[in-house]
Design a protein around this nucleic acid. Sequence first.
DNA 1: CTACTTTTTGTCAGTTTGACAAAAACATAG
DNA 2: CTATGTTTTTGTCAAACTGACAAAAAGTAG
Lengths: 244, 244
Amino acid sequence: MSDDRWEPPAILLAVDLVILTLRDSRLHVLLVERGIEPYKGAHALPGGFLQHSQEGLVAAAHRELAEEADLDVETLRLEQLGVYDDPDRDPRGRVVSVAFLAIAPRLPEPTAGTDAADAGWHPTDRVLSGDVRLAFDHRRIVADGIERARAKLEHSALATAFCGPTFTITELQDVYEAVWGMPLDPRNFYRKIKKTDGFILPAGSARKAATGRPARLFRAGPREVLYPPMIRPVDSPNGKEPVQ
Amino acid sequence: MSDDRWEPPAILLAVDLVILTLRDSRLHVLLVERGIEPYKGAHALPGGFLQHSQEGLVAAAHRELAEEADLDVETLRLEQLGVYDDPDRDPRGRVVSVAFLAIAPRLPEPTAGTDAADAGWHPTDRVLSGDVRLAFDHRRIVADGIERARAKLEHSALATAFCGPTFTITELQDVYEAVWGMPLDPRNFYRKIKKTDGFILPAGSARKAATGRPARLFRAGPREVLYPPMIRPVDSPNGKEPVQ
DNA sequence: CTACTTTTTGTCAGTTTGACAAAAACATAG
DNA sequence: CTATGTTTTTGTCAAACTGACAAAAAGTAG
């Protein structure tokens, strides 16, 4: 590391949070309405600067979430999503932001906190389509977060994190369909899930909806890494086309 | 974001680089010997602080690599590995480091640069085993980098990045075996590779080693994302054991 | 009891996998 | 030139997995 005599550059470190949840079978992301400049009035991801030099990034993320959305997220497992460091991403100066991703079961409607004029859930497709405009490079961050969630659904038991403590296989399928944005065959899905070892555990049979055969209940199994993985059907397996 | 009246915390931003390559069928990582305190004399990843507030992280990474290891890495594609922000990771103060990962074909022996007393390739297993001690939390970063490389081998054409512009299927297999740390069946590997669409393209038949049947030559195909993926055999598919 | 809905269990052909054998294409030694 | 050794490449075969689809099971509503 190079550190002779040298002035520490004035760089601000921030965190941004992509909190995803499912509401009536659609993927939603938590957004706040900015109460201050820049981008005052625009939607943005919850987040903010580190408060003091000893504050950890994860701690800052939790603090901002509590401040801005009044969400108690002790249980939320935040996963590092990436660092966003384009020098021009924030008009106030050089702001390097570390983005975190979290997945949650149906969360309550958040209430506005101190900084943010309003906080609420927004369908991700309206964000990705540009229908809902986001401040800074937050749309990119949301896109990266969704892609990460999609990929994690293939190899980890993340999907159960979208569900409550107990759930049916159909509910689990709803998660996959919402996040992947494609329909799946219930019968093949059922078979695949049940034979993926340690993914789900029986949690007593129970009834569910008003109509149809009552579904069995399950809870998350011990397996974090899925084997075999749940491979996404090939909508477009890749950017590039098959060759030769 | 919260920014009333408030003093920007004194946080130093740094980059660290995990550069992996293959030398005689073993995975190696680039390390420098630290010329200054702290950890003077110890091995460490190349890296360092941002030079000025407008310098991009990737730019800083390339600069440090040139400075410390004299490696021309214009062609190296750096991938973000993660952020390391434990408040105690650096005795000089709060240093948040962004780690980058790069994979390269057999690189030349690097020469020591200005800051580092020495730079060279070290077998990753000697680092992971603790046989080679690293400064800061760099052993952890190396471990994360290797795990990322292992995972990427499954779903991306990364393996070809370890090879030269043209290579044989056996050479490609050597990459998988070295990174995954397990032997693979040559016949099944051959079949799998050839039917993974767009992974490799023929590049003229040619001879190779002194002995045995001459191998065909291939070059990297257009496909970045592998479909179907190259799934790792289950050595231990997961931390937790199969249940029920 | 009948109609309807949703969950769960099957079926079946095609594909992929893992383990293994054999042929092909050289180099080298005698 | 022939035999031997080595490595690459092409096969084989049973087991497992996948995708598409049918049918049974278990409820509710009328």
